[in-house]
């Protein structure tokens, strides 16, 4: 069972169709079951009971989750593989000491994968769909997988299976979600 965490401004928002359902659809078509929960509900859950966890993205204007970073401190000790997408990457970076910084991108852009990883494969350039007004700096305990220090496209914790990607893999890069489910 894979837990999808909805980071949108409220439970069952109109954005859920756009940022959570496509992820759920991809994972279910890969043969895995999903449970979707809004981040406001996590206090009643035990994230460690799930096989994997994905923190989904939000609308361009929705940065409400940044007011509740403390709600995600469990990521540090849950021991479960975690993937953060866009807003989810910002949450992960922030929990581990990175800073959320202004960085706007809208649309398809080239992404340079600079380090081999189980999630993104070998170094090469791919196109990815971006939709964000903010990004996050790379925390000390993380390795940059794609992009550059000034603009991290993807990172991974040095030891734990915790990944972040700033672009949206549900658009043209669903293979990344499939790889994550199979880690």
């Amino acid at each position: 069972m894979i837990l999808l965490v909805d980071l949108c401004i409220e439970k069952d928002s109109l954005s859920k169709y756009e940022f959570v359902h496509p992820i759920a659809d991809t994972i279910e078509r890969s043969g895995f079951s999903v449970e979707i929960r809004h981040y406001s509900e996590l206090a009643r859950l035990m994230p460690e009971k799930f096989d994997k966890i994905i923190l989904c993205g939000t609308a361009l204007k929705d940065n409400y989750y940044t007011k509740h970073i403390n709600s995600f401190s469990w990521i540090k000790c849950c021991g479960t593989p975690v993937l953060g997408i866009c807003a989810g990457m910002q949450v992960i970076g922030s929990v581990f000491g990175g800073r959320i910084v202004p960085q706007q991108a809208i649309g398809l852009e080239a992404i340079e994968i600079i380090r081999a990883s189980a999630l993104l494969g070998e170094p090469r350039t791919i196109d990815g769909y971006h939709l964000h007004n903010f990004a996050v700096t790379v925390p000390d305990d993380f390795l940059l997988l794609a992009g550059c220090d000034a603009y991290a496209e993807a990172f991974k914790h040095k030891i734990l299976s915790i990944y972040g990607i700033i672009f949206h893999p549900e658009v043209r890069n669903r293979w990344i979600l499939e790889r994550f489910t199979n880690l």
Binding site: S15, Y17, E18, P22, L60, K61, L108, V171
Partner: peptide, 21 residues
């Protein structure tokens, strides 16, 4: 992308409830 950019310029929310369905 074009609708997102227009909404960004006008400081409006943008919703695409059929996206990638």
């Amino acid at each position: 992308v074009r609708t997102q950019r227009i909404c960004q310029a006008l400081d409006l929310w943008c919703f695409n409830p059929l996206w990638q369905i």
